[in-house]
Amino acid sequence: MANSKFEYVKSFEVEDRLMPSTWIVIRIDGCHFHRFSEVHEFDKPNDEQALNLMNSCAVSVVEEFPDIVFSYGVSDEYSFVMKKTTKFYQRRASKILSLTVSLFSSAYVMKWKEFFPQKELKYPPYFDGRVVCYPSTEILRDYLAWRQVDCHINNQYNTCFWMLVKSGKSKNEAQDILKVEEITKLTDDGDPVKRYRKKVIVDHCDIIGPSFWNEHPDILGK
């Protein structure tokens, strides 16, 4: 109710605008996805359809929010990069985070049957998220490289672990062996503006070295 005596409660809302002229990264991560993958019998170490579902959900987010210029995903995690000049929802962290997480989560449920037509979704998945500002392109690239290096390490470990399990080792035995081996755009009211944008491409590539960024300088606005 506008101009009512109760409107004073708005004064308790915390200002959460993100730092201007910085890259905004929204990282979402599946909650308790180890259990989720077991209940839904995902293939180990990598379930191709589950990964394709994650990619499809990310595409939905990128297509809906044009100020996202790049995204990177691994397993049950996805990072979305918004351009430095974005005014998306006046750069309010709570709005940006809640919109991204809710859209991704709802897309996951809506698209489930497309990727798992023979499997029932036994309970709804959910994701947590965080928003971080990075002041320079160099630091942003280091962040993305960190996520890909982490992907390589985890994938190496998981591949070895599940190969040992499939060979007859128990999970505890496999863990002990690996320990020894030491494997290591907007309107005034904040609604998205529907406008033309380039086609969203899903790719598997190296983003640690300079080649990718040299081939795609437009992503970081160069």
Rank of each mutant, 00 (worst) to 15 (best):
W162I: 00
L144C: 08
D142Q: 15
I177E: 04
C160Y: 12
T137L: 05
L121I: 14
N155Q: 11
D128K: 08
W146S: 01
R141H: 08
P135C: 06
C133T: 15
I139D: 13
W146V: 03
Q156G: 05
E120A: 10
N155F: 08
K169D: 04
R130I: 01
L178Q: 07
Q118P: 04
G168Q: 06
K171R: 15
C133S: 15
N172D: 15
F127I: 05
I139A: 12
C133F: 09
K166V: 00
M163G: 14
Q118E: 15
W162M: 05
R147M: 05
E173G: 00
N172L: 13
L144A: 01
M163E: 15
Q148K: 13
L121Y: 07
Q118D: 15
T137N: 11
T159W: 09
K171I: 08
C133A: 12
R130E: 05
Y126G: 09
T159A: 13
D150F: 08
S167I: 03
K119I: 00
L164F: 03
P124K: 05
Q175T: 00
L164K: 03
N154Y: 02
P124E: 06
P125I: 04
E138C: 10
L121H: 11
V132K: 13
K119Q: 14
Y157P: 07
A145N: 05
F161C: 01
T159C: 11
D150V: 06
L121D: 08
T137C: 08
H152L: 15
I139Y: 09
C160L: 14
F161I: 03
Q175M: 15
M163D: 14
C133E: 11
L140P: 00
Q175S: 14
G168C: 04
L140M: 07
G168M: 07
R130Q: 05
A174H: 03
G168S: 06
K166A: 09
R141Y: 06
W162C: 02
